[in-house]
Design a protein around this nucleic acid. Structure first.
Lengths: 209, 209
DNA sequence: GACATGATACCGACCGGTCGGTATGCTGCA
DNA sequence: TGCAGCATACCGACCGGTCGGTATCATGTC
């Protein structure tokens, strides 16, 4: 009977969540392992027992915390809806409303993008993990747009690759804008621009079903 | 005889440029003042003589190095061209071609955005300085789009505020994508998406001059 | 059932090193 | 003579990471 008293989480999980919070707020390099173990109610020994070093802890945060959450926020809905334009707009609307309400994300931005911008030039392991996440997303978007073409929701002459790349870049930029401006209204305005773009992917009314 | 031997630059300027390089590559927090003085061929004494502390040095890098360069790259051309859609596309094309050729920017991203993402939640001075830069850019874009409406280059029902916000967010995201993927082709693809959006702002052909 | 064996989980003091920042002194020009 | 423009030496705090040691538990053997 050595497990945590009030919670059912394992020490490892508690450290992982604390590490996510620390890195999310302060960046990976500036994030302190001492702060992490303190806020997880653990010790250096426990941390280095479960993770080889700071780098591996960072990788685990990406793989086990950030990526799963990103999939839930951005991919699940995409596969349920038949009209991709509508699905993508709904995704953005829901996530923007959520992140404006829960101020944390508006202040601290997108966890995956934060790590991407900080670590990509410095650590190839981070870069590849993060890039894989974005690539999966782009491919899912492109596939959804292709399906949308067949169902008559999207114009045939749209380059689904370019559109997917812009949508992902748009998310990065919209959340980046919000983080820098700390202005939910500006965030919504940028999103409106994106919705206008998404609508422009639709067939002109005369030709629709 | 204490001045620099080969160059005409003042010590202050050399430190400033070295600081820009260091912060650009490693981020502000992880950037080391020791590295800066070493690569500037100066000393701690010189650094702290010209700048109060690390924070003020960072502010000076934003104000005196990054912002002027950004203005040259993104604003000057905007005011010379009458068709804003064409001017914006030309700007992106030129800067993308340049940054793919000079690999540094492709690897390290946009200096202003890097600092924005790292420091906005941590230091209000950084946040405000950077936000001011982006706001000026958004306002210039919106103004150019409004002028474009009067000249018949842009549809009347376009929200120039939303479009300007999306274009700036797009730049953040496109450069962010490039930095993470280190893939110039993907960068161009995302930009093509943006060009398609910009074209969609034009009046339909039938109504044009 | 009792006990030796060994793995796992964890502790916290401590390590070398780097950090941003400071105190002081020299040096050449006005 | 005074002061700007540096250089040098040094400080305490904090960093990621290591180390010796302990507590707990599963397992095989008798």
């Amino acid at each position: 009977m050595a497990e945590a008293p009030a919670t059912e989480e394992s020490r490892r999980t508690r450290i992982l969540r604390a590490a996510f919070e620390e890195f999310y707020r302060n960046g990976f390099q500036a994030g302190s392992l001492n702060h992490i173990v303190a806020s997880a109610g653990a010790t250096k020994g426990a941390l280095f027992h479960h993770f080889e070093n700071k780098q591996e802890l960072g990788y685990a945060v990406v793989d086990e915390v950030i990526q799963p959450s990103g999939r839930r926020r951005w991919l699940d809905l995409l596969e349920q809806e038949s009209d991709p334009v509508e699905a993508i707009k709904a995704c953005f609307r829901r996530n923007i409303a959520e992140d404006i309400e829960v101020r944390t994300t508006l202040e601290c931005g997108c966890p995956l993008n934060n790590l991407a911008q900080e670590m990509s030039p410095l650590d190839e392991g981070f870069r590849q993990r993060i890039e894989a996440g974005y690539r999966v997303w782009r491919e899912a978007l492109a596939a959804a747009l292709e399906r949308g073409k067949q169902l008559g929701h999207v114009r045939e002459d749209v380059s689904s690759g370019a559109a997917a790349a812009l949508i992902v870049a748009g998310q990065m930029g919209i959340w980046g804008t919000a983080k820098n401006s700390q202005d939910g209204e500006l965030m919504r305005r940028a999103a409106e621009g994106l919705y206008a773009y998404l609508d422009s992917l639709r067939p002109s009314r005369a030709a629709s079903v």
